[in-house]
């Protein structure tokens, strides 16, 4: 464990907490893409499938973190699609999720480390996570704005994988450890946030709201 990965995981936890708080406090999921949250839930379940296959004692934090990610993302989907369904902005959340899931699944079968079920699921989860934020970014471009709290959520969510890139550089240099598939997907994922990061740094930090077109 290094500082980059620690802050990456904390940033990811913060993102999940910010979104849950936003929906719970405002009792509304306006401006939140339900499809992105569904895709994240699929990512966690397919990536941490080992939790279900052979039960492992929850002694180490990693298992606890995996359970937190899975339960929090499923609970977020429950809030969006059931509890606060009336506030779900379905007609703006219109990016076809199939256009993300099918290519990720196909690519996972073509480019992977080992052709076995668990490995394919892990690879699918990595590829899907790289593009899972697109429906959310698409929704913001359709509505033309993002609530400040949603911007903070996106900043934390984008920073998590950006910090993981620093973690991978660190591990390559000090531990001679590489995970090529995760690195390539993580770079693609972070690049997708660049436009948002620019808007966040130039606007939200100064107390303005993000309004598109910028």
């Amino acid at each position: 464990m290094n500082i980059f990965r620690l802050f990456g995981d904390l940033s990811h936890l913060a993102a999940i907490a910010i979104l849950l708080l936003k929906i719970w406090k405002t009792r509304s999921c306006a401006g939140v893409s339900g499809k992105t949250q569904l895709l994240f839930a699929v990512c966690f379940i397919t990536r941490y499938i080992d939790l279900f296959l052979h039960f492992v004692s929850l002694y180490n934090t990693e298992k606890v973190m995996k359970l937190i990610y899975i339960s929090a993302s499923v609970f977020t989907c429950y809030l969006i699609f059931f509890k606060f369904k009336a506030t779900y902005d379905g007609n703006h959340d219109s990016m076809r999720a199939e256009f993300l899931i099918v290519p990720a699944a196909g690519l996972a079968c073509l480019i992977n480390t080992k052709f076995d079920a668990i490995e394919i699921l892990w690879t699918f989860s990595i590829y899907l996570e790289a593009v899972a934020i697109l429906p959310q970014l698409f929704l913001i471009s359709k509505t033309g704005e993002a609530e400040t709290i949603t911007s903070h959520y996106l900043f934390a969510q984008g920073s998590y994988r950006a910090l993981y890139i620093l973690n991978w550089i660190y591990r390559y240099h000090y531990e001679s450890h590489v995970d090529t598939i995760a690195i390539v997907a993580g770079v693609v994922q972070t690049i997708l946030y660049c436009d948002f990061f620019y808007l966040y740094i130039t606007k939200v930090v100064k107390g303005q709201k993000i309004v598109l077109p910028a």
Partner: peptide, 10 residues
Amino acid sequence: KLIEGQHDEL
């Protein structure tokens, strides 16, 4: 020697 593909991260 590079250690490749141990998915030991979240």
